[in-house]
């Protein structure tokens, strides 16, 4: 959370996160290179670079794609989410090294430009075994490139979170392209079934995680509220919500977070202005609703970030009738002050 843009807003957690990323990558590359050199010593340096970086990139991509649903299924995993974009940029860097070395290895020093060669060398689009798998890798790398260069909050703010999120959903297309790039490329040569099983296991794990998380979210979104009164909907009992915490309700189209702060109940739009994090899964810290994803903060009574920050979310009316929480799903303009509902002891 910042009022101005810096390349990286370093803090202790980010540094720890990045050291872990560096450690993981170094460990992988060293292990892969050493084992290859010991047990398969005829390898060439270029092939070693191409293979070690590509396999690391694919592994990192799986980890990155698993973080989202893991956090939705278990909020203890949220520290993984905090600096995920650095993991993404690292993955892109590995994929880029793989791509550049492959382009040079397989297309340079020929009779056409290497980038042209990439698209005109193999044109067997009608045959699955002969399919030009390198084009798949190129387009996946292009998506990763766009994601990496737009990963900064500057782009998030300027593109708007909606467009930014939509743009970054292309990572799923990139994942599909990567899987097919591997299957129609190196697996056609390295036809060991264990490799296919590894790819399949990665794909199956990600699919199960994403579908489990999505169906759980779907259940929250499908909640039915029977009691209605003058535009208000009865959502829960007062004691269902812990002090400093919230419950999320999806009435009509959007989710609303109902927070209990000291002796009052407040309701704000559940979606954080930063990256769309679920504010209702956050906590009140220093009097501010704090997003569980990146720690963006909002005041419960008006949905505004404390100065000098300028983010604002919609607020809603809440009232309490006989220990029941009633919520009006019609939003007020972002940042509108609402007094909340007083909890009577």
């Amino acid at each position: 959370m910042s009022a101005s843009y810096t390349a990286v807003g370093w803090n202790r957690q980010k540094k720890i996160y990045d050291w872990v990323i560096a450690g993981l990558c170094t460990a992988y590359l060293t292990l892969f290179a050493l084992l290859t050199l010991i047990f398969n010593d005829q390898v060439t340096l270029e092939t070693l670079i191409i293979r070690s970086t590509s396999t690391l990139a694919v592994l990192l991509l799986h980890i990155i794609l698993a973080i989202g649903p893991l956090c939705r299924l278990n909020n203890k995993c949220l520290p993984l989410l905090y600096n995920r974009r650095h993991l993404g940029v690292t993955m892109f860097s590995m994929a880029l090294i793989h791509g550049v070395f492959s382009l040079f290895q397989f297309h340079a020093l020929g009779n056409v430009n290497p980038l042209v060669s990439l698209f005109i060398s193999n044109t067997n689009y009608s045959s699955l075994p002969a399919f030009p798998f390198q084009a798949l890798g190129f387009f996946a790398l292009f998506i990763f490139f766009v994601m990496a260069v737009t990963s900064h909050d500057f782009w998030l703010h300027n593109l708007s979170p909606g467009i930014w999120k939509t743009l970054h959903m292309f990572v799923y297309l990139a994942y599909f392209l990567v899987v097919m790039h591997v299957m129609l490329g190196v697996i056609q040569y390295e036809n060991n079934p264990v490799l296919v099983i590894m790819i399949f296991t990665g794909m199956a794990a990600l699919t199960v995680l994403h579908l489990r998380a999505a169906f759980r979210e779907h259940r929250t979104d499908s909640q039915q509220f029977s009691k209605q009164l003058e535009g208000f909907v009865c959502v829960c009992d007062v004691q269902d919500i812990e002090n400093g915490r919230a419950k999320i309700f999806c009435i009509d189209k959007e989710r609303i977070a109902v927070y209990r702060h000291e002796d009052r109940m407040y309701a704000i739009h559940n979606v954080c202005k930063h990256q769309g994090g679920p504010l209702g899964e956050g906590k009140i810290i220093d009097g501010c609703i704090t997003c569980p994803w990146h720690g963006y903060q909002y005041l419960p009574q008006n949905g505004q970030s404390p100065p000098p920050f300028k983010e604002k979310v919609s607020t809603y009316d809440v009232k309490l009738i006989e220990n029941k929480v009633w919520l009006n799903p019609i939003p007020f303009a972002e940042g509108t002050e609402r007094e909340g509902a007083l909890i009577k002891n």
Partner: peptide, 12 residues
Amino acid sequence: VGTSLALLQKRF
């Protein structure tokens, strides 16, 4: 994963 992939490569 690193060990498996390194060792599963065909002999060069």
